[in-house]
């Protein structure tokens, strides 16, 4: 079975694919160098500042690539181009986890760990519920998964609102609201960030290994099965890996939307739908976007003394227009 050579993949020459991926890698590297030079002042940093800036670069890069790869996985799993990590309720689950953790801290007087512990706990519980509820006869049903995710997202959102109301402005509301805007973690060491990033790389590796099967699974179930793809195993793998990647990104940068949606689409416009190159290109685009968003946040603070602004907003502001510009030739094709 030569799954890697689908007609769509042959549309883009290998040399051009390599050149585009090299250009994307160069863009990410350039963004990282820019961020390493850009802080409260612009220039080469000393050892202390280098550590701090490297921490931001690593966190933004890792969160960006994990969100993007997770987005590719979920779009393949759900066969839905609008799928992104948070459509399965992971973001709202993480927010609920942070809220519960903060309430434990407030009500019981405990120092109940940093936000990321609550975030990963909430995301994982949501993931387990969606996984268990979104199956039909033991096999993940894309539609069931999507609907369960949307319902869980709504329930989590409602619980966050109720807890927010209960605890009130004198308590944790403001802090959780800030966290939900999406800020790079300032409380993890380089080693911890590296560990989360390495987990992401393992996830990327797993998805690359099953990329040919992901290509085939984009056809109907019957066609995929007839071509020898084990759909049950593929979907379970996609779901678990995508969810863990999204939860890892939440740990590093809070709940950031958009990157997981737009990065795969930009990559697809550049390289076509083949999942092996799509995963790599999406990862590079996601990392670049979030590092650039971090640069923009720092630059605005330097110019206007606004304090550090949430990178989630800048990621959308940077990536949105680029995506629209790239999408322009494709718009209106559905109109007869």
């Amino acid at each position: 079975m030569q799954l890697a050579h689908t007609p769509e993949r042959l549309a883009i020459p290998a040399g051009r694919t390599g050149a585009i991926i090299a250009a994307l890698f160069a863009a990410m590297f350039g963004a990282a160098v820019l961020r390493l030079c850009l802080g409260a002042t612009f220039g080469l940093p000393d050892a202390t500042l280098l550590t701090l800036r490297l921490s931001d670069v690593m966190a933004a890069g890792a969160a960006g690539f994990m969100l993007a790869v997770s987005g590719v996985g979920l779009q393949a799993l759900l066969r839905n181009p609008l799928a992104e990590p948070y459509i399965l309720g992971l973001s709202s689950g993480a927010a609920l986890g942070v809220m519960v953790q903060a309430i434990i801290r407030l009500e019981l007087g405990l120092a109940a760990g940093a936000n990321h512990l609550g975030a990963i706990g909430g995301a994982m519980v949501t993931m387990a519920v969606v996984f268990l509820a979104g199956r039909r006869r033991g096999v993940i049903d894309p539609l069931g998964l999507l609907l369960t995710g949307v319902v869980l997202m709504t329930i989590n959102g409602a619980l966050v609102m109720l807890l927010n109301y209960w605890v009130g402005p004198g308590g944790i509301k403001e802090n959780v609201s800030q966290w939900m805007m999406g800020y790079l973690t300032q409380s993890l060491s380089l080693t911890q960030i590296g560990f989360v990033g390495a987990t992401g790389l393992v996830g990327l590796g797993i998805l690359l290994a099953i990329a040919p099967a992901m290509d085939v699974a984009s056809f109907s179930d019957a066609e995929a099965i007839s071509m020898g793809v084990n759909l049950r195993r593929l979907r379970t793998t996609l779901f678990v890996v995508s969810s863990v990647l999204a939860a890892g990104a939440v740990v590093l940068a809070g709940p950031i939307a958009f990157i997981g949606l737009v990065s795969p689409h930009i990559a697809r416009l550049l390289l076509g739908p083949g999942h092996d190159t799509l995963l790599i290109a999406s990862a590079l685009i996601g990392a670049t976007l979030l590092i650039l968003a971090n640069c923009a946040s720092i630059a605005v603070n330097n110019a206007f003394e606004t304090g550090i602004l949430p990178i989630g907003a800048f990621a959308a502001l940077l990536g949105g227009p680029v995506f629209l510009w790239m999408l322009r030739p494709h718009l209106g094709r559905g109109v007869s």
Partner: peptide, 10 residues
């Protein structure tokens, strides 16, 4: 209510 990162705290 500005948010500060570690470099700005330095």
């Amino acid at each position: 209510a500005p948010v500060y990162d570690r470099e700005r705290l330095l």
